[in-house]
């Protein structure tokens, strides 16, 4: 990931900044600049998600992508935030502690790094509530 690409996403990764359409009430994460339902009638505002939600489904990763080998086994989950949108994130706990329906809250963690010399990517992961 280029430095600029990560930098542009800092508000979303650190603080779960998404958007909200005040016309229809829908919430979006990642943020949408136009409401797909209301189109031109939609009024989009910035919205910070609290980050609490529920695990819809998850996988326990045993064969990791490059850079994550020292973390296996780890949990990758789809989390439905309380406001509605779903996102993919790591849930920090023993694999046996996680179930579909587990309530989670956000924590600030290292998401990865470009290389030993490169920049460190920080952002949001989740832990059971």
């Amino acid at each position: 990931m280029t430095v600029a690409r990560f930098w542009r996403k800092i508000p979303h990764r650190y603080n779960l900044i998404g958007t909200h359409c005040t016309t229809c009430g829908e919430y979006y994460f990642p943020p949408r600049q136009m409401c797909p339902t209301c189109r031109r009638d939609g009024k989009i505002e910035s919205y910070q998600f609290e980050g609490k939600g529920e695990v819809i489904t998850y996988a326990v990763i045993h064969t990791a992508a490059k850079g994550y080998a020292n973390q296996v086994p780890y949990n990758l989950a789809i989390i439905k935030l309380d406001e509605g949108p779903s996102l993919t994130g790591q849930v920090i706990c023993e694999p046996g502690e996680l179930e579909i329906g587990t309530r989670v809250r956000p924590v600030f963690r290292k998401l990865g790094e470009e290389s030993e010399k490169g920049m460190i990517y920080y952002g949001t992961k989740f832990v059971p509530e």
Binding site: V107, F108, R109, K110, L111, I120, Y122
Partner: peptide
């Protein structure tokens, strides 16, 4: 520290 924790993540969690 956890595998994904360092002085920055600890500083942020304490500040929050």
């Amino acid at each position: 520290p956890g595998l994904d924790e360092d002085a920055i993540t600890i500083a942020v969690e304490a500040a929050r």
